[in-house]
Design a protein around this nucleic acid. Sequence first.
DNA 1: TGACAAAGTTAGGGGCGCCTAACTATACTG
DNA 2: CAGTATAGTTAGGCGCCCCTAACTTTGTCA
Lengths: 153, 153
Amino acid sequence: MKKSYQLSASVEDYIEAILNLADEAGCARSKDVAAKLGVARSSVTGALQLLREKGLADHEPYGGITLTPQGQAAARAVVRKHEVLASFFQDVLGIKKDRAQQAACRAEHALGTEIIGKLVDFIDYVAASHQNGWDVAHEFRQFCRRRPARSKE
Amino acid sequence: MKKSYQLSASVEDYIEAILNLADEAGCARSKDVAAKLGVARSSVTGALQLLREKGLADHEPYGGITLTPQGQAAARAVVRKHEVLASFFQDVLGIKKDRAQQAACRAEHALGTEIIGKLVDFIDYVAASHQNGWDVAHEFRQFCRRRPARSKE
DNA sequence: TGACAAAGTTAGGGGCGCCTAACTATACTG
DNA sequence: CAGTATAGTTAGGCGCCCCTAACTTTGTCA
């Protein structure tokens, strides 16, 4: 029986940053987490305390930060949401890359696995349509060109 | 020059509830806002104070709640986001109505007008595809049937 | 009209998440 | 090894948003 913890957006941000840093730099340092999230170093210290209490991350004072298996799983789920959303915004809706990334960051905490799963399917469907000679994304872009856009953040 | 205030999710929830109640019942009462949002009555009092400071709503103590023109505009923007998202989740992705509504509630605060505008376009495109004899939503459902679903919240 | 119920408010408190300032531990360099 | 820069922590505080409990105002009805 696995408890599906409801993680706060903040906690999700932290574990996502830690996972990304670990992938990029091999090891996540508190300082870099602070820089990546744009928060004070002391905020990271506080968050790490919480992450340890939740069993998501380990770190001894002045040591490196490591995600527990549970923390890794949670982090990968967040990263996956982020990637799926960014891909949908960019590849299907035609949003510019950096804006798609930003929007994905904000939205990734709000959507559950059902919607994300469906979005994966949808992205795959759009990709498959491309190979069948009927490119949905392309058609949509054509469609947009024929009508005034409302876009603007 | 119109300042695009960054409203907190909480403030958006309140003005959305007030607008909905005003549309449904003709007049928004504090008690009903509390019930709709599932918060204590005193929380509504506090929120109303904030809404007045922000120029979004008026209400004299023990009186009815009314949105200012600015508040109405903000509320309608939130409602629109909600409706667009719910429609996309339900009509395009095929999510069940109540789950689509829930997800829209959670996501509506995270997405800006650019993405919402594109979603409107996309929904329209899907509808138009239907009339052209190539129903994207239907095709997608077929596509899903041919592969295992990952859905589950 | 007087009493009671319902609606609204005030007062006080708590959690979360962030900040700055000051302190401590570690690392680097001459 | 001293001395300084850097990383990390602690302490204290603030804003937001919620709560409960108690109080005030309003509405209703015999």
